[in-house]
Amino acid sequence: MATEKQNSTTVPTGDTLVDRLKVLIHSVLSNRRCAVGLTLLTPIVILTVLAPIIAPYNPTETHMGAQLASPGGKFLLGTDHLGRDLFSRVLYGGRSSLLLGVTSTGLAMSMGVPIGVFSGYIGGRVDELIMRLMDTLMSIPSLLLALLIVAMMGPGLFNAVIAIATVYTPRIARVVRSSTLSVKQEEFIRAAEARGESRLYICFREILPNISSPVIVEGSIRVGFAILTGASLSFLGLGTQPPTPDWGYMISTAYDHLWSTIWYWLWPSVWLGATILGFNLLGDGLRDVLDPRVEESKVM
């Protein structure tokens, strides 16, 4: 039973790493959620990266006499209250959101995963001490801790990344630890201990592959949440600072002109929602592909 579980963690067929990778890519692409997620994310990422080439106007260039214009004509998606081209601003606005989502999640995972696995496996006093510290950080709700850190460091994109990574590290560590605790009791861990494997080996070669599914789900969902939290900070005026375009900040200024035009509010909202949706779908799809226990759901 235990060995069966262990073996099926890796993608079954194929001998070389390249073969396995091919199988993995194939199953990722044939998963519906992954496919929808990637369909949403690919154009967004491409458009965001190529913003300087595609954008028809400079995102901070104002056009007097063309304020709050409706879509069509000179401005594809209309203009904002200062007559800036919304299409260009939405394209450039993705840069800060994507950058923030990926870097803050990466930073949080690189701290949270080792902490969680190590703490859960070692157990005892060390585990208790580490988890107390994590609990303390988690006793302050995430957005409030982020607000507190931003209040300390000052508003801005870089400070928002630090704040969000700090906020998510203990959360990731806790999820990873609880998965570790359940895997820890499995027989193959005792077998590895009997073989005399080192703690480091057991943590990263025995436990980590067997909790890869919660780790991947956690990571992918965190990217979406990180973008969301970052956008919330910007909405409150504490994230990315003007005149740099940012979806959250655009929505907050559009809010003041809600009764004059709906377009100003609509575009950044749609792009922000689609991006977060894309990451969430991708994360769940990856889970279906990588989790050996839910073979059947691959069709979905």
Partner: peptide, 16 residues
């Protein structure tokens, strides 16, 4: 998925 992906300030403004 929609509920989890659309930020509360977007939903709120939409409801408004």
């Amino acid at each position: 998925y929609l509920g989890i992906s659309v930020p509360e300030f977007v939903t709120g403004t939409g409801l408004l």
